[in-house]
């Protein structure tokens, strides 16, 4: 009885917390984020080795940051802005390569690796032989754990 009570109270606590979190997060209008900054984070500072426009303390990066701010204020879309910078600095100005053309490999390869790895593990599981039923094993495991 107390076991069932514990389960019930745990479910209630978890359920209510989750519900509140989801409701609050879903109805939240703040946290859209600073568009200029997030754009600047995705563009490489042209005179730096690996820093973004947002991170670099150099004057050029600041000027670029301001320019992005003006472009955003003028109603440019993200793609317009990226295109503008690619036209002057080349593709390498994008720290987040486009999911097309030469950048496509970078998007497919990780997913492919995940899929292949998952398939290998699943295959391993399938290759095993069953001697005892799942229910039996569950009982044994529970009993063992209770003891130990």
């Amino acid at each position: 009885m107390s076991e069932r009570l514990r389960t019930l109270s745990a479910l209630i606590v978890i359920g209510v917390s989750l519900l509140i979190s989801v409701l609050v997060l879903a109805t939240d209008s703040t946290g859209v984020g600073d568009r200029v900054h997030s754009l600047a984070e995705r563009l490489k500072c042209p005179i730096c080795t690996s820093e973004s426009v947002a991170d670099s303390p150099s004057q050029v990066a600041r000027d670029l940051y301001d320019l992005i701010g003006e472009q955003v204020a003028d109603g440019w879309t993200n793609d317009d802005i990226f295109e503008f910078f690619v036209a002057t600095y080349g593709e390498e100005v994008l720290l987040d390569p486009k999911a097309s053309g030469v950048g496509i490999v970078l998007w497919i390869a990780p997913l492919a690796a995940l899929a292949i790895g998952g398939a290998v593990i699943a295959g391993r599981r399938a290759g095993k032989h069953r001697e005892i039923s799942q229910a039996e094993r569950s009982r044994i495991a529970t009993a063992l754990e209770e003891q130990g």
């Binding site: 042209p46 050029v60 000027d63 320019l67």
Partner: peptide
């Protein structure tokens, strides 16, 4: 002014 020419030309140094 504000590096606009340098940005326009894509100057790196």
């Amino acid at each position: 002014d504000r590096s606009r020419a340098a940005i326009g030309f894509g100057v790196r140094g």
